[in-house]
Amino acid sequence: MVLKGTTVLRTGTSQHEAGHFLIAYLLGILPKGYTLSSFESLTKEGSLNVQAGTSFVDFEFLDEVVMGKVSAKMLNRFSCIALAGVATEYLLFGYSEGGLADIDQLDRLLKSLGFTQKKADSQVRWAVLNTILILRRHEKARSQLAEAMSSGESVGFCIDIIERNIDDADV
């Protein structure tokens, strides 16, 4: 019984992280790594401070945050990537149990940029709708990506899965 619950949790986590990974890649932000559990982060990163998550090569975004001027294009990308895990879970299961940290991170960013609550809500709605459209269009790629991530495949292998399962006309 515990194994079944663990499998469901891991499957949900891999689906969630596959959402982040896929959306980031399709929006031009290169994923550089992922973990699906704290134990996995201990073995990969040597730290228990990291929970399940996907990390990115996001120097351009970090530079903009440090300068205090985040472009609308970069904010839109970040918003979609941040909400991709929650959107994936919702599409698959009808609800989302994970992602509170993702939502908090986006909320903190929007507040730090001076967004009013109304403007922040509008940004979140826009990002969720666009992310869901992309996820629906690339369901096969996301599904196969989640399977590969559950098997612990490399980032390069995961990117290859995306490339093999999208049509150039879809991007």
Rank of each mutant, 00 (worst) to 15 (best):
M74R: 14
A24L: 06
I162H: 07
Q15D: 10
L109T: 03
F59P: 12
D170S: 12
G85Q: 02
F157I: 09
L22T: 03
H20T: 06
E139A: 10
S71W: 01
H20E: 04
S151I: 08
S47C: 02
I166V: 08
T13Y: 10
Y25T: 00
E60N: 07
S41P: 00
T13L: 13
A24Q: 04
V124I: 10
K118V: 08
V171K: 11
V155G: 01
V171T: 12
D107Q: 05
A148G: 13
T35V: 13
L48N: 08
T131P: 07
I103M: 07
A18W: 01
I81N: 11
A146D: 14
A18H: 01
D104K: 06
L91Y: 00
A169S: 12
V124A: 00
L36I: 06
E163T: 15
L3K: 15
G53R: 09
G156Q: 10
E89G: 03
H16M: 02
D102F: 00
S55R: 14
L135S: 00
G19C: 01
M1D: 13
L42E: 05
D121P: 10
S79M: 03
T13M: 14
T88Q: 04
K4E: 10
I29N: 15
M67Q: 08
T88I: 03
G33F: 14
L106V: 01
M1V: 12
Q105W: 05
T13G: 08
D63V: 00
F157W: 12
F21V: 08
L36Q: 08
S143L: 10
A141I: 05
F59V: 09
N165T: 15
D160K: 09
Q51L: 13
D121M: 05
E45A: 15
G98W: 01
N130V: 02
N165V: 15
V57Q: 10
L22K: 04
S47G: 02
L75E: 11
E139P: 11
I103H: 04
Y95C: 06
L22D: 05
T6I: 14
C80T: 07
T35N: 07
M149S: 04
L106H: 03
L3P: 10
G46T: 06
T43C: 15
R125Q: 06
A72L: 15
Q144H: 12
G68V: 09
K73P: 04
L91E: 03
K119H: 06
K118E: 12
S47Q: 03
A127Y: 02
I103S: 11
W126K: 08
P31H: 06
T131A: 00
